[in-house]
């Protein structure tokens, strides 16, 4: 787990600056990582583990993530928890589009990540074909600790800014970019290979 120091272990001292001398950018990243509210969006059995992660035994509130927002406009993170059927895909994409920037996506479980054992016509083979995924959590389903590992990885990347660099340089994901056309509303989404 690439967390060198960090606020949880060392308090304010874990930041590279304290919040009087810190760069504004660092403070913004720090605060983004600590209040990333997930969208309330469960698709299948992984959602049960996601609920378990929100419960008292694992307690996502420790990361400021206990508020699963029912409205995508108030959410920062979309946890795709479960298999995405072809019919659900446009809905999922619409929810992603309705979320406000900055927004992140965790692909939870093997079904969301690659279709898993459902290699058939009904299931999208990897949700990264329709939304840009930042962190993949493996497992069927991933346990709450695996999900929290993915969340902490995402937090680390939000703090270090690795996410933006990664998208540009490594081209992680399915190699498919989805872009909203300028000046057009929800429905106009252009799919194309990078």
């Amino acid at each position: 787990m690439p967390r060198d120091g960090g606020f949880l272990e060392e308090g304010i001292g874990g930041l590279s600056h304290n919040f009087l001398t810190g760069k504004l950018e660092d403070i913004v990243r720090w605060s983004r990582a600590r209040s990333s509210w997930p969208a309330q969006f469960g698709l299948a059995c992984c959602a049960i583990e996601m609920m378990a992660a929100g419960g008292p035994h694992y307690d996502l509130a420790r990361y400021g993530m206990e508020v699963f927002r029912a409205s995508p406009r108030q959410a920062d993170v979309m946890i795709v928890a479960g298999r995405v059927s072809q019919k659900m895909a446009p809905v999922l994409r619409q929810i992603y589009d309705q979320m406000l920037d900055p927004k992140w996506v965790i692909s939870m479980g093997v079904c969301a990540s690659s279709g898993g054992m459902f290699n058939n016509y009904a299931i999208v083979q990897g949700v990264d074909q329709i939304v840009p995924v930042d962190v993949y959590a493996p497992g069927c389903p991933p346990g709450p600790e695996t999900l929290m590992h993915a969340i902490l990885t995402m937090h680390h990347q939000i703090e270090t800014g690795e996410l933006l660099r990664r998208r540009e340089t490594t081209g992680a994901g399915a190699g498919i970019t989805v872009e909203q056309l300028d000046g057009q509303a929800d429905t106009s989404v252009a799919l194309g290979r990078r």
């Binding site: 279709g115 930042d134 069927c140 929290m148 590992h149 990347q157």
Partner: peptide
């Protein structure tokens, strides 16, 4: 990103070459 940890590979293996550890905390970017 496809493995469902069903352990069938471990049961199928005739030489006990593949086994599953207890490590389940991992995620990929």
């Amino acid at each position: 990103l496809r493995c469902i940890h069903c352990d069938l590979c471990v049961e199928a293996c005739p030489t006990e070459a593949i086994t599953e550890s207890k490590l389940f905390e991992f995620s990929f970017t």
